[in-house]
Design a protein around this nucleic acid. Structure first.
Length: 599
RNA sequence: GCAUUCGUAGCUCAAUUGGAUAGAGCACCUCACUACGGAUGAGGAGGUUUGGGGUUCGAAUCCCUACGAGUGCACCA
């Protein structure tokens, strides 16, 4: 049992003994650093029942603890706050427990599985900054849930069909193919496939806008021009051809998508993201029609005179929603109903999570409500991990207006920034690195900076992306934490050279305050993992890793490790440092960030 | 207009879910280097938590209200 639980149990016992017949839900909070002690018990909730002053209760419980608890070494009462100090023997014991547990921070299996769906790109343009937040969140949440003892299945649904990809296809046909039928390729253009197709998507939009402008100039109302522009009509024709399976159209579609996938794969590989199963919308977009039938039979849906199908969710505080068009074709909601069933049939996960931006909050409320009404047994365990948009200092990103930050460009910039910073900061520490090792290191640092920057913010919140801050290596950043890891590893290497023992339990000794604080922080790790899991919040882990790294730097500054002459203290500090470096590695690992040995 | 999310230091974010004098980073001003890795540490300044009410021992957090911002309200996905 950890120290906090011991103290909580002891306090519960003290209340039962001191105030028979009374009880209270004992919850400790960490003591604020301006007061002495590590844990604080708030006595206010007891005052009413006991009819005593808060400070009086605090004194009584404190005195009882000092006498009866095995771990409490001192206490003080400030107003109604009972601050409890823990004995060094208890801290040392705790440290030994942590060190002896190779699975520290990996929680026992829940015997349950979770599906996390994320990334879900469109195949008409390369990934941008917004996708990066999505990918990093999805990947990190998957790792956090795995650490919480769940079996995790990572999935991605690729939007590989529809109007958007036809736009790129048409533009490619018109502007990217010469008279003899030879088209531009990623090789001939010297571009990644996803960027090449993105180029044609932009070209389409330009030409389309020009047509609209021309028509409006000739007196056509704007709305009509948007619908009747020749390019738009051609796109719709192309979509119909695709749906009919026209060989030429399908061949073009396959070719362009193949280029895009090659581009995506390169990006995924670089950011270290992978999936257990990828679904393609071209295979799933017709799903859901039998769900509509089922809904009609169960009386959950109803058919209008024009034969379109609807659901009335006004009782749930939502609206009426279309689930099938009057011509019998599916809408987005229909597909999602079908796909959700499909995913459940494939994996039978106890829970399903979607990492999707908050502009779709309403869609998911409706989706979940429908599935509940249809009586799906899994419907109670669906969760939309809704995250806020990423804004630029200049405002919102808009793909059509060219104000997006491209993912590949951004990654390269942060890697370059890490490389540039190393020129004056690393000074000789990388002397024995080959060029290849250096490149790997800068990749680790640049990506670490970027991932940490995007993950340290509460997922639900909209956040601002500042390009200058994102490549910063100082303060609350990924590289700051990576630096602490490299720093500790350096000390440990030096200790090994000096033949100092780095194994074995720590003997009882007196600890400095900062050392107690570090053991305390270490001991909190499993709890933070659990909290991050229930809240689906990598930001909790980011916050924790930073706190731990910062505390280590304070410790490092105040106390010497290798120059310590007392062999017991030397050993304690080394074991403590080692444990911190391992915990930093684990925590950063949950964020998908690697930590270097040297930097 | 209706629904919904949000508003914390100059800027970007925290605040253990209702607990103490609201904390970090950046930027600004000091200080500490023969360094176990200075990509560091210590300190200063910076706040009526958008304004106004309410709930209670106690509110950035819960309720009401005004103001401001985002998002959604397609037989698009």
């Amino acid at each position: 049992m950890d120290i906090q639980s011991i103290v909580e149990t002891d306090i519960t016992r003290s209340i039962a003994e001191l105030y028979p017949g009374n009880s209270c839900d004992v919850q400790l909070t960490p003591t604020k650093k301006e007061f002495e002690g590590q844990y604080t018990f708030v006595t206010f909730p007891l005052t009413k029942a006991l009819r005593q002053a808060p400070a009086q209760i605090g004194q009584a419980i404190g005195a009882w603890l000092l006498k009866n608890s095995t771990v409490v070494s001192a206490f003080n009462v400030v107003q109604g706050f009972l601050n409890i100090s823990i004995a060094d023997t208890a801290w040392v014991g705790l440290l030994n427990d942590i060190v002896a547990n190779p699975n520290f921070g990996i929680l026992p299996t829940k015997e349950q599985s979770v599906m996390v769906e994320f990334s879900s790109p469109n195949t008409n343009k390369p990934l941008h900054l917004g996708h990066l937040r999505n990918n990093f969140l999805g990947d990190s949440v998957s790792k956090i849930l795995a650490a919480n003892g769940y079996d995790v299945v990572k999935t991605c649904i690729v939007n590989d069909r529809g109007v958007h990809i036809c736009k790129s296809m048409l533009a490619y046909k018109l502007f990217g193919t010469d008279a003899s039928g030879h088209g531009e390729t990623p090789e001939s253009a010297g571009m990644k496939g996803d960027h090449l197709i993105g180029k044609y998507y932009v070209l389409f939009d330009k030409a389309y806008k020009a047509q609209i402008e021309e028509m409006v100039g000739q007196g056509t109302p704007k709305e009509e021009a948007e619908k009747k522009a020749p390019l738009m009509l051609e796109v719709q024709q192309m979509l119909r051809l695709w749906e009919k399976g026209d060989p030429e159209t399908v061949a073009l579609w396959s070719q362009l998508n193949a280029w895009v996938y090659a581009g995506f794969d390169a990006t995924y590989k670089r950011i270290g993201v992978s999936f257990d199963k990828t679904y393609y919308e071209s295979n799933t977009y017709l799903l859901g029609k039998e769900v509509v039938e089922e809904g009609l039979q169960k009386g959950v849906f109803y058919r209008k005179d024009d034969s379109s199908v609807w659901i009335d969710l006004t009782e749930e505080g939502l609206d009426q929603k279309l689930v099938m068009r009057s011509d019998g074709t599916s809408v987005y909601m229909t597909q999602d109903l079908g796909t959700t069933d499909l995913k459940y049939q494939d994996f039978h996960n106890n829970r399903q999570i979607w990492v999707v931006g908050n502009e779709q909050d309403y869609h998911f409320n409706v989706l979940f409500a429908i599935l509940r009404k249809l009586g799906r047994t899994y419907a109670e365990a669906l969760y939309h991990l809704s995250y806020g948009m990423v804004d630029l200092p200049t405002g919102k990103m808009k793909s059509r207006e060219g104000t997006v930050v491209d993912a590949d460009d951004l990654i390269q910039e942060t890697v370059d920034a890490a490389s540039a910073a190393a020129d004056d900061a690393a000074k000789g520490k990388l002397e024995d690195f080959s060029e290849e090792e250096k490149a790997t290191l800068f990749q680790t640092l640049g990506l670490g900076a970027l991932k940490y920057y995007l993950l340290k913010v509460d997922p639900q919140k909209r956040m601002q992306f500042n390009p200058t801050e994102s490549v910063d290596l100082h303060g609350n950043t990924g590289p700051y934490i990576q630096y602490v890891h490299a720093r500790i590893r350096s000390v440990l290497r030096k200790a090994a050279e000096l033949n100092v023992v780095l194994e074995g339990p720590v003997a009882a000794t007196q600890l400095d305050e900062i050392e107690q604080q570090l053991v305390f922080l270490l001991s909190q790790y499993p709890e933070r993992v659990a909290e991050a899991g229930t809240a689906y919040a990598p930001s909790y882990i980011a916050q924790y890793a930073y706190e731990l790294a910062k505390a280590f730097n304070q410790f490092y500054d105040r106390l010497s490790i290798l120059k310590e002459t007392d062999p017991i203290k030397l050993h304690t500090r080394l074991i403590l440092s080692k444990s911190i470096s391992e915990t930093i590695q684990k925590a950063m690992g949950l964020l998908g960030i690697e930590v270097p040995e040297k930097m």
